[in-house]
Design a protein around this nucleic acid. Structure first.
Lengths: 192, 192
DNA sequence: GTATATAAACTAATTATGTTAGTTTGTCAA
DNA sequence: TTGACAAACTAACATAATTAGTTTATATAC
């Protein structure tokens, strides 16, 4: 009776990602995913390890993709230009995948090897673009945390709808990254 | 048969806040709250408007409390010291109420008057401490967005466990706020 | 003091979701 | 052709939120 649909893990993931980005990650219920695929809910378990497993795979996909995106944005750029380019690419990714991005925010557990690897990939890009500034190891980590915070903070408030006002958000972001870069240089002069 | 417990809206809220901050806001189920209070789940509906209503009240409480906290931190301070003080108070609040804070992040809907008022209270504090710098109206809003982003970004990554490394987080935060302040001054010199 | 109105508890039932167990059936490969 | 496996299915169950309708403690009116 059950005619074979050609469904695999990737198709489940595709549908889930689309749902998450369109309606938020809470909208990714097994019922909704199964419905999109034209199968019953328990059939999903042939492809994924329940809802937690699906969310994990979405997170891995998201972090991996984010890393690829900002790495591409960094090639051929140096110094402040690299920071600006990466900041723009990061923001563009989150705008494209707000639902998936929300799933990437919890820190990986020690046993989540794929997610740890993907996260390291993102971190590596940031470390690489800060490399030429010749910071001490600790200073490097502080600045890395700072840059991630600035970018994440703006984008997160933005997708949460936190900037109610009519003022242009692209411009606010440009100013903020500019402030960070200039402050970073001033801080580097003073502090080390 | 049902002996009266002396439960009111405030006690429901207290229990919910404690649960949220201890185990995350997803742990605030009606079952868990009712259990803590020693009543059955449907009895909660005498005090709250379902789970959405409870979450709304938690959000209002959180934003209100956050506003009060940073306002207190700002009195008697001026300029850069005010920014530092508010940044510290904001972070301390989030550390104390991580679960509630997560509920405060979605932007208020137009009909959520209490939440809008409370949010305005938070915004007013930030606007007030930036007042003495003599910025144009637009610049003021850009910088306000920037400062919120910086603070929110750091603490949000922090409570998500995003800073895996052993490096001292207090110090990273100090550096970041310092970078923002110095960058803000440099930006103000250049840009206006 | 007694009666009554109301608030606040309750039980029962419905819906939605995730999950597991066990079953059936295409489909590919020996 | 047949047999193993993958992938669909049905059935059943647990948890959660919600609504409807019922009971009862308690404060207030008389």
């Amino acid at each position: 009776m059950p005619p074979r649909k050609h469904i695999d893990r990737q198709r489940v993931l595709d549908v889930s990602i689309a749902l998450a980005d369109a309606h938020g990650f809470e909208a990714v219920t097994l019922a909704a995913v199964a419905d999109q695929l034209g199968i019953r809910v328990p059939s999903l378990y042939n492809h994924i390890s329940g809802l937690p497993g699906l969310r994990y795979e979405m997170a891995v996909w998201g972090v991996h993709r984010l890393g690829k995106t900002i790495r591409r944005a960094a090639v051929g750029k140096a110094g402040d230009n690299a920071i600006l380019s990466v900041a723009d690419a990061y923001r563009a990714f989150v705008h494209e995948h707000p639902g998936v991005y929300a799933l990437t925010l919890r820190a990986p557990a020690p046993d989540q090897a794929e997610l740890i690897a993907a996260s390291q990939g993102v971190l590596d890009v940031v470390l690489a673009i800060l490399e030429p500034y010749g910071l001490s190891q600790d200073a490097m980590l502080h600045v890395t945390r700072g840059l991630r915070s600035v970018i994440h903070g703006f984008v997160d408030l933005e997708i949460a709808g936190g900037f109610g006002l009519a003022l242009d958000r692209d411009e606010s972001y440009r100013h903020l990254i500019q402030i960070f870069i200039q402050g970073f240089h001033a801080w580097q002069r003073n502090d080390t």
